[in-house]
Design a protein around this nucleic acid. Structure first.
Ligand SMILES: [Mn+2]
Ligand SMILES: [Mn+2]
Ligand SMILES: [Zn+2]
Ligand SMILES: [Zn+2]
Lengths: 143, 143
DNA sequence: TGTTTCCATGAAAATGATTATCAATCTTGG
DNA sequence: CCAAGATTGATAATCATTTTCATGGAAACA
């Protein structure tokens, strides 16, 4: 069984929550589908095979994923919360093309350590951060 | 007359829009009040002296400020859009204390130039960016 | 100054994403 | 298998923001 699925089940049992078919189905599709999907996008995908699963359940379950650490929430400014799986991958930030909505991931440890330096300077303890670069990818610039 | 007010009036006339009492009043209070205010917070302040100005007008006017470049929109994750005046000050980013909601501004040209480097690497043209560090200020950590 | 033309305004309704409610239905420990 | 309690799906409710629309106001112009 995948490590992610195991993490999720342990989280449920530790919290006295229950492992249900819906939660398994939603997790399956969440892991199968591409990243940075909105709740609605995931719901629409799931509905193709499981038209009886409710919208609210998808919302609730994605929130669970985020609580137990297997998913991360994002707000890229389009008014919808997006989720991506964090399969033990290293942290990364995002370039967002406002033309084609493409999302490019990047990581730069130098930026991360400068962030730490800034925090130290202000006697601040960082718990989370977001760095998003908005603009146009090369394809969109050629139009 | 302040440079900001002038910029705003020129923007209005260039666009064939009209200079109204409400817009002047809202701009005055926007410049007088502290930064990073939400629409509701600004509306409540304005209402003390001008109870006849409508909520929708404050929304519309703040959007105008942002369009003409005298204000900047922010989303610090509390579900409300916040605005701050950009009185020709240099760009800065934000440390946000999730305990007391305090907002600390900082700038680090080294981070900015690393962002440019990342963009170059991905053949991406940055039009905007957001860097927000969430965590706890020193005071909030001592509780 | 009066007229005309649009734009702006305020109140209220509409929207869109997300959350809460609730009766019916599963999970799970014993 | 059973009881206790969590989950689900449908739907109503929220909350911030936007739209609508009738009325009022700015501004170019006569
Ligand atoms: Mn990502
Ligand atoms: Mn600021
Ligand atoms: Zn693009
Ligand atoms: Zn604090």
């Amino acid at each position: 069984m995948g490590k992610i699925r195991e993490t999720f089940r342990r989280y449920l049992s530790d919290k006295g929550l229950k492992s249900t078919q819906q939660r398994e189905i939603i997790l399956d599709e969440f892991l199968r589908a591409g990243s940075h999907l909105s709740t609605e996008e995931l719901y629409l995908r799931i509905r193709r095979q499981h038209p009886n699963i409710g919208y609210a359940t998808v919302y609730r379950t994605l929130k669970l994923f985020s609580e137990c650490g297997i998913a991360e929430e994002h707000n890229f400014g389009d008014g919808q919360t997006r989720y991506e799986s964090v399969a033990g991958e290293e942290h990364h930030d995002h370039l967002i093309c406002t033309g084609c909505k493409r999302i490019i991931e990047f990581e730069d440890p130098r930026i991360e350590s400068l962030q730490d330096e800034v925090a130290r300077l202000h006697d601040f303890k960082i718990l989370d951060h977001r760095l998003e670069l908005y603009g146009l990818c090369s394809e969109c610039r050629q139009k």
